[in-house]
């Protein structure tokens, strides 16, 4: 077993993990944070995307052992109490989710994408979304929601 100390959504955890335990399974089964969804488990669908040390990553393509000393953010850490994160609020407003399976991964990738892009347009947003499979909405409301937040952020000082 490998000792892992990690901060997830601001809370410190110390756990002993098997070397082969995936980060996605560590979050869901060891820590009980089931907001991170697991779809394809080989990096294609994007559902399991979380943020590790300020970069969005596929949690099914990382080992829990690799996040020793890291800061992890998952979808559970986005809202501030009852107040939704601006992206979550925009998704809700624009009906950008139906079943919600892909949503946590798209939200976490979008948080990272918006933090590191300079007023992205719809085309760049669509390109970013190429790494996420959604089988319900047809993507348009998702692009609309992310674009709306990008515009909001562009206006604030």
């Amino acid at each position: 077993m490998i000792e892992v100390s990690v901060t997830v959504n601001g809370r410190a955890y110390e756990e002993a993990v098997a070397p082969r335990l995936l980060l996605s399974d560590f979050l869901r089964h060891t820590l009980g944070l089931t907001g991170t969804h697991v779809g394809c488990e080989h990096g294609v669908c994007g559902s399991c995307t979380v943020i590790v040390d300020d970069r969005s990553v596929r949690s099914c393509l990382m080992l829990a052992a690799q996040v020793d000393g890291a800061e992890v953010r998952t979808v559970e850490g986005l809202a501030d109490g009852d107040e939704l994160h601006p992206l979550q609020a925009a998704f809700r407003r624009n009906h950008a989710l139906q079943c919600g399976f892909c949503t946590p991964g798209i939200l976490m990738a979008s948080v990272d994408f918006l933090e590191r892009s300079d007023s992205p347009g719809r085309r760049q947003i669509a390109e970013m979304l190429s790494g996420h499979l959604c089988r319900c909405t047809g993507y348009e409301p998702i692009v609309e929601s992310i674009h709306a937040v990008a515009l909001q952020e562009g206006q604030s000082p």
């Binding site: 994007g46 995307t49 970069r55 969005s56 990553v57 596929r58 990738a109 390109e127 970013m128 790494g131």
Partner: peptide
């Protein structure tokens, strides 16, 4: 190469 998220890693 791949996607935004996979290029991060």
């Amino acid at each position: 190469i791949g996607h935004f998220v996979t290029r991060n890693r």
